[in-house]
Write a protein that binds this DNA or RNA. Structure first.
Lengths: 150, 150
DNA sequence: GTTTGATAGTCAACTTAGTTGACAGTCGTT
DNA sequence: AACGACTGTCAACTAAGTTGACTATCAAAC
């Protein structure tokens, strides 16, 4: 593990992906804990940071995250209870919920993206922006493969 | 999502990593289920496929997987009960367990790696082996960052 | 305008998989 | 022989997901 040869050479790609993601996960969780956001559910940071992607509709959120709407509902509930989200009824469609970040939620989202950006920056400085861009492209292709085969 | 522009451009890297890993996860689970291995715990495929890495010692396994030794013990137990693993006492150190694949375990490991390889091959054909190799390198760097900071 | 079917979210019961703390058995060293 | 360290397991708990049933609301058809 500590020799500078390619220790990861015999790792299958999914494990490598998992470990790479954990690098972010650990950094983000550490940053959140350090700032007092120590009651964050696992998908909390992703939700707070991705509000613009699903605009605050739990069902869209479920689709985006690949979980059931019930799980999404519980996740949202946890974040509301812990003061990260405001939940209100959509006046245009009273079945729907409108979610928005509280001040605490904004702060946690900021801490999250800041920790993530720090890793990004470190990676950029180590391998260069081109390599990162190409990795993103290849990862995008990989996700696309899964969606077609889905 | 369905336009061929870089739909993933606004995704943070950890989410992209997570989704890329899910591509493998879905394919592997589907292949296992199709062959009758429908009682596989989440980390089962990784364990069966990585036996050579920790040689069959649950404690090393726990370190490798980043889980507690208790969780590793339960995981092993589940795989033994379901017929994927044999567990016996190490005669040289009777505290230790020696794990080995049963025939069923071998078959499941084969199905796993075969599904994983199919995705690998598809990716190779789409982006080329060089891009994959470079991605592996960048991912390795990323994991290394986490280990230093850890 | 009322009925009818689809949709958004929640509640309840359950399962899976992780955690920590306590412990028994074994080993190695003094 | 005794002490301390290490391996694996048991028990109790927690976190986070699942499915099925349900309510409330909307939209469209008649």
């Amino acid at each position: 593990m500590s020799d500078n040869k390619q220790w990861y050479a015999d790792l299958v790609l999914p494990v490598l992906l998992h470990e790479a993601r954990r690098t972010y996960g650990r950094a983000i969780r550490a940053a959140l804990t350090a700032e007092g956001f120590d009651d964050m559910p696992r998908l909390g940071p992703r939700l707070l940071g991705g509000m613009h992607r699903f605009g605050g509709q739990p069902t869209d959120l479920a689709g985006d995250f690949g979980i059931s709407k019930q799980a999404a509902s519980k996740l949202v509930d946890a974040l509301v209870v812990r003061g990260y989200l405001d939940r209100s009824v959509d006046p245009d469609d009273r079945r729907r919920m409108l979610l928005s970040l509280t001040e605490r939620g904004e702060a946690a989202a900021k801490a999250t993206s800041s920790a993530s950006d720090r890793i990004d920056r470190e990676l950029d400085q180590t391998v260069g922006a081109d390599a990162v861009a190409q990795m993103r492209e290849t990862l995008g292709t990989l996700v696309g493969l899964g969606e077609r085969a889905g």
